[in-house]
Design a protein around this nucleic acid. Sequence first.
DNA 1: CGGTATCCTATCGGATACTG
DNA 2: CAGTATCCGATAGGATACCG
Lengths: 114, 114
Amino acid sequence: MQTLEDLFGKCPYATAQKILSGKWTLMIIHALVSEPLRFNELQRQLPDMTQTTLTRQLRALEDYGIVNRTVYAQIPPKVEYKLTDIGMDFKQVLMSLEHWGDKYIDYHNQRAPL
Amino acid sequence: MQTLEDLFGKCPYATAQKILSGKWTLMIIHALVSEPLRFNELQRQLPDMTQTTLTRQLRALEDYGIVNRTVYAQIPPKVEYKLTDIGMDFKQVLMSLEHWGDKYIDYHNQRAPL
DNA sequence: CGGTATCCTATCGGATACTG
DNA sequence: CAGTATCCGATAGGATACCG
């Protein structure tokens, strides 16, 4: 049987779905769109995510070629995360997603306000 | 501690992330963008997904207000799935996602052809 | 035709403790 | 500062069998 993984690298939706499957992926990419950030800067922007999970998702994004990790050889350590070119291209998706998300939120708050 | 769920309905990214978290969500929405489909038409377009899973993800999308389910009282049964208005609005996201996905695939096939 | 009902497994994310 | 090493529980998805 063909799986989703087999479609990775072939179908743009399956590919995107797999890359974005991490629970915090969208928010990590969003945080990095405006500027490169150090590990703890990312942590501060995503306070609800544990350190372990942040590390894991960053590694995954690195493997997918979305994020670049630069280690500066100094004490104390400094590690900087920035989007790759293709990662930066994702900004367009993020913008339409934000637009839609806001509309969705408005739409639903009208009938079931929190 | 605040969780992702608390951000649902507030942050557009967290909201979108949650809605799109289903493994086949993007492909289901994509299949429904062009026209409403019956259950087994969806199955045929998504042959790699089990019936159980298709049902579950459709129910989830229905709960989120993305998909509308219409049951026609006839024998044999006919059930039609179509996108709601806000579901249709997602088409813009899908288009930018497709564009990015194709670019991503091209980009990666150049250095690591399958 | 369009599902349910179960069961089972893999993976993922959270919690906690420790480290160069 | 930026991790790693473990362990654990939740849950999502697949497989299979059956139903109105």
